Amino acid sequence: MRYAAVTDRLADLGGARWEIHALARALKAEGRDLIELTIGEPDVPTPKALIDVAHAAMKRGRTGYSNGRGEGGLVSALADRYSARLGRPFSRDQFLCLPGTQTALFLTMMALTGPGDEVLMGDPAYATSDGVIAASGAVSVPVPLRPENGFRMRADDVLAALTPRARVLFLNSPHNPTGAILTRDDIAALGKIARDHDLWIVADEVYEDMVYPGATFVSPLSFPELAERTVVTSSISKSHAAPGFRSGWCVGPAEFCARALPLSETMLFGNQPFIADMTEAALRAPSPVAAGMVTRFSRRAALLHAALDGVAGLAVNRPDAGMFALVDIRATGLSGRDFALDLLKHESVAVMPGESFGTTLAGWVRLTLTQPDDVTRAAADRIARHAARLQKA
């Protein structure tokens, strides 16, 4: 039987990148006692107050159809939030509400790119980013995010990758998997390239509320001169520990939203009203859980650095945000995948190979910071022991 070309484009961009995680889950199901440091899921439950809002909304009948843009209360809350944060007015027609950041990115890329177009994207990148680009027929063009530059995208590297087919510059700050944050100067330089070469800027900012003490987050939306070419996506998945509710949005020029709205209506025809009410409540008050997660994640990043950096040739990258830390394991002589498989086999610790996120992280592994301190410390001890064993061998 014949299938659409999109199935071929996405064939190798799905579950294969989560091989170690899937193997670890299978071993746990068989009764294996192991430490899982693969998936970036908040370490606290969704706040009860938000669940109560969703429950109350369902009880009063907020379970019918919505619309392609989003429920009015939520759209107003988004406009108020971005107007207050960025110090300039945002109108309701600059937002589209969707089930999570992933869907928002899919919609955005489908609206902005087509077959043969190029999207300049950092390498490494979140494991599903290639897929949301390839779905439209566009091509990901990797821009190396170099460790010596703090994993921040540099304008010179973008220019080196630029061709006349480029349509979008895709940013992710705070960044997954590195925890890097683009500075104001970084964005100014990247924005100049976008203006000079008529590129859209698409920014995934889902970790905006996960910034560690001493670091500063800046959005390209902060630059008025970039406003008409910037689309930002985000959600409450991380900031409010609500990944399973799948509630996100995109914000951009009103013209972009008007052009993308029929596509949104074709895909989903709106998100669930009771979840929209919960999201509105979430956005109209400070998150009750974000600050605690930031404190714990930054503490665990420091714990891993103290326990592993310089041990048996390992090097730990200190993140500025998010819920992950990177460990350079190249001194072991193994790839990230082989190290992860070996670590799971001998020490029952599951980590993500750097190769799941791009070629720049070949010989690295990513560790989640969402396990309790004592579990994180135990995992660090096992990783150190394993690296020392490999070094001796």
Rank of each mutant, 00 (worst) to 15 (best):
S76C: 10
A79H: 06
R81P: 06
R81D: 12
R85T: 14
R88T: 15
R88C: 12
R88G: 07
P89K: 08
S91N: 11
R92I: 06
R92S: 08
R92L: 00
Q94K: 04
L96G: 00
C97N: 04
G100H: 09
T103I: 11
T103F: 10
A104F: 01
A104N: 04
L105W: 05
F106P: 01
F106A: 14
L107C: 08
M110P: 00
L112V: 03
T113L: 02
G114H: 08
G114Y: 07
P115R: 07
G116M: 09
V119D: 04
L120S: 04
A125I: 06
T128H: 15
S129M: 12
G131D: 12
G131V: 13
I133W: 07
I133F: 05
A134E: 02
G137K: 06
V139D: 01
V139E: 05
V141Q: 13
L145E: 00
R146E: 15
P147L: 00
E148H: 09
F151L: 07
M153Q: 08
D156P: 01
D157E: 14
L159A: 14
L159H: 12
A160Q: 10
V168P: 00
F170A: 04
F170K: 04
S173T: 14
P174Q: 07
P177M: 06
T178Q: 04
G179E: 10
G179P: 14
L182W: 05
R184D: 03
D185I: 10
A188E: 11
A189C: 02
A189G: 01
L190Y: 09
